[in-house]
Amino acid sequence: MADDLYRYPELRSAGNTRGAVRHAVEAGRLRRVTRGIYTGSNREPGEQVRAMLMRLPAEAVVGFHTGARLHGFGDVPQDVLHVIVPAGSVVPRIAGVTVHEAVLPVPDPVLLSGVPTAPAARCAIDLARTLRRIEALPLLDLALRSGACRPGDLAQEVTRHGRLRGVRQARHLVPLADARSECRQESQLRLVLLDGGLPRPEPQLWITDEWGRPTFRLDLGYRAHRVGVEYDGRSHLTRERLRSDRARMNWLSAHGWTMRYFTDRDLYLRPDHIVREVRRILPPRPTGPTVGTGDRGWRWSTCQAS
């Protein structure tokens, strides 16, 4: 329990009557943080979360979406507090709190903003198991790009989840995670290509000029075949960006690159179109197992384009 947070029974046992507590709140000497939890200090980072945890079993730790956000890779918007408790715990209903009863213990929670939090790899794999694939890979990419996790951390953590729900999806996605991916849609576009059985593209591929100087960078590319694949979001709609894009496209075309550009409509409503277009400009692959992960267990839905 934090030193600056007090349960109501503790205040009463210290000799305060109900009226005295109420008067202290009205006078500003005490502040009610959540039901039954009070503080006498100014607002501090993590205060609300710590107060909520005081209403839960002692073993409760923050995890899933909230844990990922505290670790710096909370890519999925969530206003709800997500906590993990041991399976079978008696948990009160608290508005704004989602409780995950876990049979898998949380080893060595870390303290972030004064809040006991599941390790970064645990948060990442829990989400990789439970999110839709189209959301899970961007989160794993961001977990690596933020430095919160290393590839070995994710690989080791996923083995701990054994036969838990969704672990098959997590096992497929962990080897595909790439720290070079720079946005959600780029990660999702890469997943579409892989699940379509196409070769693995290189994220953030630098193209050099005739003097070997880095000149342009592609979202995704196949260097050996001079094929580039890019996502066009709202940032490409300004006049200045349009001029820059046209000069870039002309240079790439003049230097033997074949480019394909896709929008949110392609990505979220017709991913098969993306696969067909890219397959058409790549040389035929040798017969044999595909690189795609299979298990295409998501439903596409429209989301905010960058």
Rank of each mutant, 00 (worst) to 15 (best):
A2T: 02
Y6T: 04
Y6P: 01
R7M: 13
P9L: 07
P9R: 14
E10Y: 00
A14V: 00
N16K: 05
T17M: 00
R18G: 14
A20S: 15
V21F: 10
V21M: 10
A24Q: 15
E26I: 09
A27G: 05
A27N: 07
G28D: 05
R29V: 03
R32H: 10
V33N: 05
G36I: 10
I37S: 12
T39D: 12
G40K: 02
N42Q: 12
G46V: 10
R50N: 13
L53Q: 13
P57F: 01
E59H: 08
A60R: 03
A60I: 06
G67A: 05
H71V: 09
P77W: 15
D79L: 14
D79F: 14
V80D: 13
V80H: 03
L81K: 05
V83C: 02
I84T: 15
G88W: 07
G88H: 07
V91R: 00
G96T: 09
V97K: 07
V103M: 06
L104T: 13
P107C: 10
P109T: 12
V110Y: 07
V110R: 08
L111P: 00
G114A: 06
V115R: 10
P116I: 07
T117N: 09
A124I: 10
D126R: 03
D126T: 02
L127D: 09
R133A: 15
A136H: 04
P138E: 11
L142E: 08
L142F: 03
L144Y: 07
G147A: 11
A148H: 01
P151V: 00
D153T: 01
L154V: 06
T159R: 08
T159E: 15
R160H: 08
R160P: 00
H161T: 11
L164P: 01
G166E: 04
A170F: 04
P175T: 12
L176P: 01
D178F: 02
E182H: 09
C183V: 02
C183I: 02
Q185M: 13
Q188T: 09
Q188I: 03
L189H: 02
L189Q: 04
V192H: 03
L194P: 06
G196Q: 12
G197K: 03
G197Q: 04
R200N: 11
E202V: 05
E202H: 04
L205H: 02
W206F: 04
I207C: 05
R213Q: 15
P214V: 02
L218Y: 06
D219W: 00
R223G: 14
V227S: 11
G228Q: 07
G228T: 10
V229H: 06
E230F: 04
Y231S: 06
D232V: 07
H236M: 14
L237C: 04
R241D: 15
R243A: 12
S244L: 04
S244H: 03
D245C: 00
D245I: 00
R248I: 06
N250W: 00
W251E: 10
L252G: 02
S253W: 00
T258F: 03
T258R: 14
F262K: 00
D264T: 09
L267V: 06
L267T: 07
D272M: 01
I274F: 10
R276A: 15
E277P: 02
R279V: 00
P283I: 04
P283A: 07
R285N: 01
P286Q: 12
T293C: 09
T293D: 11
S301E: 13
C303D: 12
Q304R: 06
Q304P: 01
